[in-house]
Simulated assay, not measured.
Amino acid sequence: MEHIKAIKADNHEIFSRVYEQYHHQIYGFILQRTQSDYIAEEVTQLTFIKLWKQRNNLSEQLHVNVQLFGMARQVMIDLLRKEATRFKYEGESAATPFTDSLIDTIESKDLLRLMEQDIQNMPRTRRLVFELSRKRGLTHKEISQQLSISTKTVEQHIGKALLQLKQHLYSIML
């Protein structure tokens, strides 16, 4: 998180280190999803440009890699949407449904993967309460009986879990 502070303070050396550390990972992340060298190169470059331009809006509570991969994902989706629009106006409409479904698939899979990671990183009881509620569909009363905790405690765990997920998703969308 000290990288964020340094980048926010216009430290070019730290920014260069972050670039060296993550540009291959960002490239691979995008290449895996799009199977396009061109898009992977473009998105990688645009991601680091975005990181620098939006450095003052970075969260000091999140690691640089979390914010960087979130930016890369958003840049990729934006680029794919621009390509779909370009295809429409150039009369290549056959490519548009493919691009749209690719965007939807990427967004869904990434979102589910990120949410599952967030759930796994929750404290044990919070995670258990959340999974019993959202994955198994148990009521608050059923959960409280099963775990021998009050329904109020169940509500608090679910509220904290949802808040944690919302905060992380919000930081990704920046």
Rank of each mutant, 00 (worst) to 15 (best):
M1D: 10
H3Y: 12
A6T: 02
K8G: 10
D10I: 04
E13K: 04
E20W: 00
E20P: 00
Q21M: 06
I26T: 08
G28H: 10
G28K: 12
F29S: 13
F29C: 05
F29W: 06
I30Q: 09
I30S: 03
Q32V: 02
R33T: 00
R33M: 14
T34A: 05
T34E: 05
D37A: 09
V43A: 14
T44P: 00
L46Q: 12
K50Y: 03
L51V: 08
Q54M: 13
N57A: 09
N57Q: 13
S59T: 03
Q61G: 01
L62M: 10
L62Q: 11
L62E: 07
V64L: 08
V66G: 00
L68V: 01
F69I: 03
F69A: 02
R73M: 06
R73L: 11
R73I: 01
D78M: 08
L79D: 10
L79R: 15
L80H: 06
A84N: 10
A84Y: 08
A84S: 14
T85C: 08
F87R: 15
K88P: 00
E90N: 14
G91V: 09
G91H: 10
S93D: 12
A94M: 09
T96K: 14
T96S: 05
P97Q: 15
P97E: 15
F98W: 11
F98L: 13
D104G: 11
E107F: 04
S108T: 11
S108R: 15
M115I: 12
E116I: 03
D118R: 01
I119Q: 02
Q120T: 08
N121H: 13
N121K: 08
N121T: 04
M122F: 06
M122L: 14
P123K: 11
P123A: 15
P123G: 13
R124V: 05
T125A: 15
T125K: 14
R126Y: 03
R127W: 01
L128F: 05
L132A: 06
S133L: 03
G137W: 03
L138W: 07
K141D: 13
E142C: 02
S144Q: 04
Q146V: 04
T151D: 10
K152D: 09
K152T: 09
T153N: 11
E155R: 07
Q156K: 12
H157P: 00
G159I: 02
G159Y: 06
G159E: 11
L162W: 01
L163M: 04
K166T: 05
H168W: 01
M173V: 01
M173T: 09
